[in-house]
């Protein structure tokens, strides 16, 4: 069995109540539940964009507060719902993270553009010239530029149309497998969850209702709540 990478022990924050679970290396955890259930709040605890009020989060068996914050965020990368690209060129965006850690070499841009399936000559394009799908790809590449071990995805395809969603999903799966990334992803689409995830965490009103193997959860839900949720979505 893979090593434990994250451990949440009775974590409380805003709506979240006593969240407890473990995440192992190369797990692909899907967080799902109704809106307002606390999914984004939970996601932000992984890279200290937010902190628990009570409880502890362990990263590689050490309290998460013991890590240098920029370094932690570098190895636990977050892709937001909207691309929120920085001004100027695609290359400026790709270099943003690595340049802070003096860790950029020629050739990385090409590799990153490859991962997200964008033509290499796009790197000198202004981000204003990109389509919505292209922007989200750049946003993904920008996070990957930091060479994270864990990838946090906050509904990364929610702002895209179906054709784009499918294409990005394929690339996402490829690059997750290629880089052996551990993934935590929020999604509203159960089909997407099935395609990408291996584990599932179902939360409602800040509480974990079910947690475990994703296929198991989706095919044999234990609780009426999850049954109803799956029926609706």
């Amino acid at each position: 069995m893979n090593e434990v990478i994250f451990q949440f022990n009775q974590v409380n924050r805003l709506v979240l109540k006593d969240i407890t679970f473990t995440l192992r290396e190369e797990d692909r955890l899907i967080i799902f539940g109704s809106s307002g259930a606390g999914k984004s709040t939970l996601l932000h605890l992984f890279n200290r964009m937010d902190d628990p009020d009570y409880g502890e989060v362990l990263f590689h068996n050490k309290r998460i507060e013991q890590y240098d914050i920029p370094q932690l965020r570098r190895s636990v990368g977050l892709v937001l719902q909207q691309p929120h690209l920085f001004p100027d060129t695609v290359l400026d965006n790709l270099k943003f993270g690595p340049s802070m850690f003096d860790d950029w070499e020629e050739g990385r841009a090409e590799r990153l553009m490859n991962y997200v399936n964008l033509p290499i000559d796009y790197i000198n394009k202004s981000v204003d010239e990109l389509s919505g799908g292209e922007k989200q790809r750049v946003s993904l590449a920008r996070t990957l530029a930091n060479k994270p071990d864990v990838l946090l995805l906050d509904e990364p395809t929610s702002a895209l149309d179906d054709r784009n969603i499918e294409a990005i999903e394929e690339d996402l799966i490829k690059l997750i497998e290629h880089n052996r990334l551990t993934v935590v992803m929020i999604t509203h689409s159960m089909d997407q969850a099935k395609r990408i995830g291996t584990k599932g965490l179902y939360i409602e009103e800040g509480q974990v209702i079910e947690y475990g193997d994703l296929n198991q959860l989706l095919e044999n839900p234990n609780t009426d709540q999850l049954k109803q949720f799956l029926h609706k979505s």
Partner: peptide, 20 residues
């Protein structure tokens, strides 16, 4: 806000994130 969050989540310090 979104860009600032993105910058922070990429490992930027507040100073760096707020530069723009």
């Amino acid at each position: 806000r979104g860009k600032l969050l993105a910058a922070l989540s990429l490992g930027a310090t507040p100073k760096h994130a707020a530069h723009m």
